[in-house]
Structure formats: structure tokens, C-alpha cells
Nucleic acid binder design. Structure first.
Length: 108
DNA sequence: CATATGACACTAT
DNA sequence: AATAGTGCCATAT
């Protein structure tokens, strides 16, 4: 059993990313409470490249770059494009496709 | 317990 | 703008 709450939570949030949207490693880390654990987030996803329920390809860099991918960044870009995310020059428009994790309770 | 690794981020050059 | 160097955090060994 994995007690790695961190990694476990990373998958949970990644699964919440709707199709056609993208999140950033840093943002994910922040949602977990570890704002500076962007690297750790990436590690978590990299360790689970087989998780079909975890759309790890929807997680990109903070600067809009698609970043790396276990099966190759090209594959990642392809998947994103298929989902409706326009990837141009290996970058995505975070202003348009960025998905912010929100608590289902809050509504402010 | 210390060292090494890694799908990142930021600052300086 | 692009590249390099440094920092950060979690896991694996």
C-alpha cells in the first residue's frame, strides 16, 4: 500500500482535469499544499505512466510549455490537440486552457 | 540516515 | 529572447 499521500493526491487532482483543459505542475503542487513541489508532482506522474485513468498529458509547465512525457512530448501534444487544446510551437495558451483546482464547496 | 535522481520553477547572464 | 545555473520537494536506493 502506498502511503504516499502526496503522490496519491497528485493523481486525484490530475483526474479532475476536464478534457480540453490543462493544469500546471506548480499549480497542482499548490493545490496539494506544497507550492514548491512542482518537481515532486512531475515525479509522481512519471512513476505512473500506465495509469489510464490519470490524464497526465493534461499537465503542462508553468510557462505554457507542454513539458516532458513518459512516451515522448510529441505524444502528449497529440493527445492535447485531440482533446481540443491548441498546441502551438510546443506551447499551450494557459490563459485559455488553464484549469484551476477549486474546492467544490466554495463559491465565493 | 545520506546520496542520487527527476515529466519543474525562478533568477541571472 | 534564449541558455545556464541554482533552489525545492518527494521518492528510490
Amino acid at each position: 500500500m502506498s502511503s504516499a499521500k502526496f503522490t496519491d493526491h497528485v493523481y486525484a487532482l490530475t483526474r479532475l482535469i476536464p478534457q480540453g483543459k490543462v493544469a500546471t505542475y506548480s499549480s497542482l503542487a499548490r493545490a496539494l499544499g506544497n507550492s514548491g513541489a512542482a518537481r515532486a508532482v512531475g515525479n509522481a506522474l512519471n512513476k505512473n505512466p500506465d495509469a489510464p485513468r490519470t490524464p497526465c498529458h493534461r499537465v503542462v509547465r508553468a510557462n505554457g510549455q507542454v513539458g516532458d512525457f513518459a512516451s515522448g512530448s510529441a505524444k502528449k501534444i497529440k493527445l492535447l490537440k485531440k482533446e481540443g487544446v491548441i498546441v502551438w510551437q510546443g506551447k499551450v495558451d494557459l490563459e485559455k486552457y488553464f484549469y484551476e483546482f477549486k474546492n467544490k464547496k466554495q463559491g465565493c
